[in-house]
């Protein structure tokens, strides 16, 4: 399904390895257009788009369409998700677990908290399981070894416990707080 190029990498750049590097249109790497909820257009290679289970099934249902509307997805997280999937396809063609791990780690560390959390529903909607795993683990890592207050501000949670309830909970769970700095 992917393409007839024998190159191990299938990014946008690989089109240039095909016999006629300049003509972008009539090439083995078919492009698919994704439209975000804020009406931004993303042109991605078919192989990348097929990483999105949602888009894939959309195409299986109606193969004639060339633009897929994504009503639940805004442009910024979508562009980041596409960036991630492009890299994953390289690793698929050329498996290197160590490099993949390194890339995945770097991908999440450079994102802001908000970007991370914004991407999670997108990865979920598009059904990209690997990315969802990476993102959820990254969020879990960010709230590890932090205070309750930090976790609240991370998610923008309003504390809906009364002062008494919270004090009781803290007393009850005092067993878990040996040697932890209250910060």
């Amino acid at each position: 399904m992917s393409s007839s190029t024998d190159s191990p990498t299938l990014t946008t750049e690989t089109t240039q390895l095909s016999p006629q590097p300049d003509t972008e249109t009539a090439k083995p790497t078919k492009k698919i257009t994704l439209k975000s909820s804020d009406n931004q257009i993303f042109e991605v290679e078919e192989s990348v788009a097929m990483e999105f289970a949602t888009v894939k099934s959309f195409f299986e249902d109606s193969p004639s369409t060339d633009t897929v509307p994504l009503p639940n997805v805004t442009a910024k997280p979508l562009s980041q998700v596409i960036e991630f999937c492009k890299e994953q396809i390289k690793f698929k063609a050329n498996p290197d677990e160590a490099q993949k791990k390194k890339y995945n780690a770097e991908f999440v560390t450079e994102k802001s908290d908000k970007d991370l959390v914004d991407m999670i529903p997108v990865a979920n909607y598009l059904e990209i399981k690997d990315l969802l795993d990476v993102l959820n683990q990254a969020v879990a890592d960010r709230i590890e070894n932090k205070s309750v207050e930090y976790v609240r501000s991370f998610f923008g949670i309003d504390n809906d416990f009364t002062a008494e309830e919270e004090a009781a909970l803290r007393r009850e769970h005092a067993w878990a707080y040996e040697g932890v700095d209250e910060d």
């Binding site: 879990a140 890592d141 070894n145 609240r152 309003d158 809906d160 416990f161 707080y177 932890v180």
Partner: peptide
């Protein structure tokens, strides 16, 4: 993910205290 990768009990118990 958090409960399986937590490196101490408080990492996880914190969550219980944040909100309902």
């Amino acid at each position: 993910k958090l409960s399986s990768s937590a490196s101490r009990p408080s990492d996880f118990i914190n969550i219980i205290i944040t909100c309902k």
